[in-house]
């Protein structure tokens, strides 16, 4: 044990983190570090202190550069298809089956709903062209008449509406996706989603059905402070459905299916 202490007190770990050792010395330290958790812990603490010190020496947080870098690398989030987990895990498979089954059920419900909507849509309304669509969606909640007005505007602009129904975890939840295919944009109306708990946020997924593949199209960030709860995201996918899951802040690479709040297919 005193050997561990000697290594810790020697000052080598500090030089290891800052990169002042030779390659051979680095490999030696890496080896003991993997062997003794106390040494790894020490290295973590040294690194953490230096991370904070250098972050403090940064004139500002360069968050805004991330998009520019990703554009240069051609890896914008919305264009990348996330492959379904590779691991051959029974429970995962079962969960996917669950998702497939609920989509099948929804297709049924949706076609009924669609017929109903079609009748409603036959009522003639005047489209208010100049109004911002976002305001219009939020206002449409106020009255039936406004809803009809909105539907007309959406139809005029060739925007497709997809209703997302609440899932097991929140049967009362509900959301709508208004998909403007021409401009690759989706308006997510999330007024009927519960406020996410601290440290979590909603993530919206575009789905293609065969094979079932989710692709993240973005987060509903600052949910609580967003007044009308309408979020505009970019969607360039050939979506066949949309789902909304609750994820840790910052989002996840793949959806957490136990936290699937709403789901719907494109009719």
């Amino acid at each position: 044990m005193s050997e561990i202490n000697d290594i810790i007190e020697s000052g080598s770990l500090e030089l290891y983190v800052v990169g002042a050792l030779s390659e051979k010395q680095n490999a030696e330290i890496t080896a003991v570090l993997k062997q003794y958790p106390e040494i790894e812990q020490e290295v973590n603490e040294i690194e953490n202190a230096l991370l904070q010190l250098s972050a403090a020496a940064s004139p500002y947080n360069p968050e805004q550069l991330l998009d520019r870098i990703k554009a240069k690398l051609n890896i914008g989030d919305s264009t990348k298809v996330i492959p379904i987990q590779k691991e051959d895990n029974k429970t995962k498979v079962l969960m996917w089956l669950g998702w497939v089954a609920s989509i099948a059920l929804l297709i049924g419900i949706f076609s009924l709903w669609n017929k109903n909507k079609e009748l409603e849509q036959q009522i003639e309304v005047v489209a208010t062209e100049n109004k911002d669509l976002e305001t219009q969606i939020s206002e449409s909640r106020a009255s039936e008449e406004k809803t009809k007005e909105l539907l007309a505007v959406l139809r005029d602009r060739n925007i497709q509406t997809v209703e997302l129904q609440g899932q097991q975890i929140a049967p009362e939840a509900f959301a709508a996706v208004h998909w403007d295919k021409e401009n690759n944009r989706v308006y997510i109306d999330a007024k009927h989603l519960p406020t996410p708990p601290e440290g979590k946020e909603y993530q919206v997924w575009s789905l293609t059905l065969e094979p079932l593949t989710p692709t993240s199209i973005g987060l509903l960030s600052n949910f609580e402070s967003d007044e009308n709860k309408i979020f505009i995201l970019e969607n360039i996918n050939l979506s066949e459905g949309f789902g909304i899951t609750l994820e840790p802040k910052g989002g996840s690479a793949t959806p957490t299916l136990e936290q699937l709040y709403t789901l719907g297919t494109v009719g």
Binding site: L51, A55, S58, N61, L65, G76, D77, A253
Partner: peptide, 22 residues
């Protein structure tokens, strides 16, 4: 994985910027 890139950036970019700026 692009999302991993985003997270790595978020975690290390400010410190890296501090080093570069110095």
């Amino acid at each position: 994985d692009p999302q991993a890139f985003t997270k790595i950036y978020e975690r290390y970019s400010e410190s890296t910027y501090g080093i570069i700026y110095s």
